[in-house]
Design a protein around this nucleic acid. Structure first.
Lengths: 113, 113
DNA sequence: TTTCTATGTATAGGCTTTCTAGGTATGAGA
DNA sequence: TCTCATACCTAGAAAGCCTATACATAGAAA
């Protein structure tokens, strides 16, 4: 997995984003994230499950157990709070990315004015 | 300071970027970063100094002590290794940002195909 | 003169987040 | 039966940044 350090602090946004298109169980969130990112984000389960539990504790997502072909599944969906949090985090990401571009771009194009 | 969590894992890139335009001492790095980011990144010293020491230990920057008006200053400059690292981290950032946009953007525009 | 503010460096301790590494279990295919 | 893919979980470690604090000088304000 590339971007090990970089993903820190952005995993919630990514997770909420893929769940915004519809409920998914944990394993599927990982796969969807990998696919949507063009194979760039390939999270270990040990990162994803704790993240989902954290989001659940914060009431940004809710979970429901089911059983498919003898396999138990925990399906997550966004709450209203989660949807609002996603909007806010999207804006935060935009601002953050813009600021980074300004700093990193440096001289080439006008940064701060 | 906004973006507390988000900056994690990107501080090295930001620091190297501002030092790429010329040597600066720690306090000035903070100010330059704040200015260049449009006041978005306002790092506490307790974040910046450890980061600089980390980069110094990795030989990405070198430091030189001087004294200006009775005040001691430690001026940092990029090494060749640091310059190469900056290039690599810039590319990583681009890839990372693109991947995040793909995931976050979701339905609105084609993400994975 | 004393105090406040800005400049300038530094570190210890703590918190949060992610990763590593391991575990459990089912179903399918070889 | 063994292995692989699916599907869940957690303990403990590592990393990185923040809070809080400390020290020191210069200049301005009181």
């Amino acid at each position: 997995m590339r971007h090990k350090q970089q993903i820190r602090g952005h995993l919630d946004l990514l997770t909420l984003s893929v769940l915004a298109d519809g409920p998914l169980h944990g394993y599927a969130v990982i796969e969807r994230l990998r696919a949507r990112s063009g194979e760039v984000f390939d999270l270990p389960e040990g990162s994803m499950y704790p993240a989902l539990h954290r989001l659940e504790r914060s009431d940004l997502i809710t979970a429901e157990w089911s059983s498919v072909q003898g396999r138990r599944r925990k399906t997550y969906r966004l709450t209203d709070r989660g949807r609002r949090a996603l909007s806010a985090q999207r804006r935060d990401w935009e601002e953050f990315a813009t600021a980074v571009r300004s700093v990193v771009g440096g001289a080439p194009w006008p940064a701060t004015n």
